[in-house]
């Protein structure tokens, strides 16, 4: 069993990896994003980015967390019914700017951290860039 194959078991996931669109995807199941970040740290995986998607109607958001493990791109999707998810900034320093950018672009709150403005100028409010107002 190689390192990649051993990850679902380490994360307590019963789902297999699905390779699609250039990414090895694993559905995190009951695992929280903080547990995932701790597991990725233990594997010495390199954090790459978070991609945020606003879902249709009032379905909330999908955040896709990406890490690199020996050149393999790993992806973990998290669905947000509301506007918030735990921050992993204290576990993974590299997420700082992308959490701030998503907060400002989509008005998603990453709980447990403080923000300083990154892209926003005086008078702007979070959600000004990428969030679509639902009618």
């Amino acid at each position: 069993m190689n390192l990649l194959e051993s990850i679902p078991e380490q994360l307590g996931s019963t789902e297999p990896w699905v390779e699609k669109g250039g990414v090895h995807w694993l559905t995190p199941g009951a695992m929280t994003v903080r547990e995932l970040a701790q597991a990725m740290n233990a594997l010495h995986a390199r954090f790459i980015t978070i991609t945020a998607y606003q879902l249709p109607k009032d379905e909330g958001f999908r955040l896709e967390y990406h890490w690199d493990l020996d050149g393999q791109l790993l992806g973990f999707p998290f669905l947000l019914a509301g506007n918030s998810i735990d921050s992993i900034y204290d576990l993974c320093e590299a997420v700082d700017w992308i959490e701030r950018e998503i907060h400002e672009g989509f008005a998603i709150d990453f709980l447990g951290r403080e923000y300083e403005p990154l892209l926003l100028r005086q008078g702007d409010k979070p959600g000004v860039n990428l969030r679509e107002e639902k009618k």
């Binding site: 669109g21 250039g22 990414v23 790459i48 896709e64 791109l73 992806g75």
Partner: peptide, 16 residues
């Protein structure tokens, strides 16, 4: 329908 991801090594580093 779907999402695809690509990465390359740009002069300054990885672009995704």
């Amino acid at each position: 329908t779907g999402t695809a991801t690509s990465r390359v090594e740009a002069p300054r580093g990885e672009v995704m």
